[in-house]
Nucleic acid binder design. Sequence first.
DNA 1: CTTGACCTAGGACCTAGATCTAAGGTTTAT
DNA 2: ATAAACCTTAGATCTAGGTCCTAGGTCAAG
Lengths: 144, 144
Amino acid sequence: MYRIGELAKACDINNDTLRFYEKNALLSPSSRSESGYRLYTEKDKDILQFILRAKNVGFTLAEIRELLSIEVNKADNACADVKELVDTKLSAVERKLAELTRFQTSLKRLSDACCGGEESAEHCTILEALESNTDDVRHEHHHD
Amino acid sequence: MYRIGELAKACDINNDTLRFYEKNALLSPSSRSESGYRLYTEKDKDILQFILRAKNVGFTLAEIRELLSIEVNKADNACADVKELVDTKLSAVERKLAELTRFQTSLKRLSDACCGGEESAEHCTILEALESNTDDVRHEHHHD
DNA sequence: CTTGACCTAGGACCTAGATCTAAGGTTTAT
DNA sequence: ATAAACCTTAGATCTAGGTCCTAGGTCAAG
Ligand SMILES: [Zn+2]
Ligand SMILES: [Zn+2]
Ligand SMILES: [Zn+2]
Ligand SMILES: [Zn+2]
């Protein structure tokens, strides 16, 4: 049996995070001591590690709650259910990746067009690009 | 001169967003009507579009505030200052991209190992991977 | 003159995932 | 026996970027 601080330290998270997970129906201690302290079992620790691993893979806590509800009742769920959660998440991650890649491309284009020197920014191509209503960046060097 | 609703509609944002930008020192209307209505000039509109373009490239509002302070006073800033903002942002975007790519790889690995069928999830490789303390996913198919 | 669209200020509320505070009770070590 | 470390609860706070609400003032058309 772990008390909250012991489990938190063992899993390198904050005590408050465990209370937060309890309030949000992710993980409740199996019992309480006479004085009301939370008591976690090895099984509780396993569940916590399941949660932390799922977080590491990118799942939100809401998604992890769904995974857990399957996990505790595997027999009544199909592989299809589990895989759908993963694939839905994968799509979301890929959409976010696409957006960030768009950001990266734009920023690179802006960066490459600017000399980065100590000249006044009056003709800075970065600022010009942000002022103009096109996506173009002048590629000739400024400061003639 | 645009009233708040006109400018908002022209730029396809919410009236409240303009008030929010004003409160957060990004864009203040050049004047007010006798009755206190915000009045925006064409120049204000240009600044708004600068803000929206910068947002589109991934800058946060705090970063945009920095860009604007350079923009309104270009002569006193160097290309180096502008480029540094862009490059710092680019690095942040690339770190986030790396994290998301890690998520993507893990999720793909999980998804590929699961049959996704209507069989019971009792031997689902996804759940097994999340239960186990390794990063491995069994690649042999479950459900013998 | 009334209706409806528009505007004002100020503050509350939202998501996500915690983290922190206050005021007090419990356990452990010295 | 008493200090240090640990625990309890409820609720506040934080980031980011807004959105919504209240209670009321303004403006144009019919
Ligand atoms: Zn330059
Ligand atoms: Zn430049
Ligand atoms: Zn299967
Ligand atoms: Zn499966």
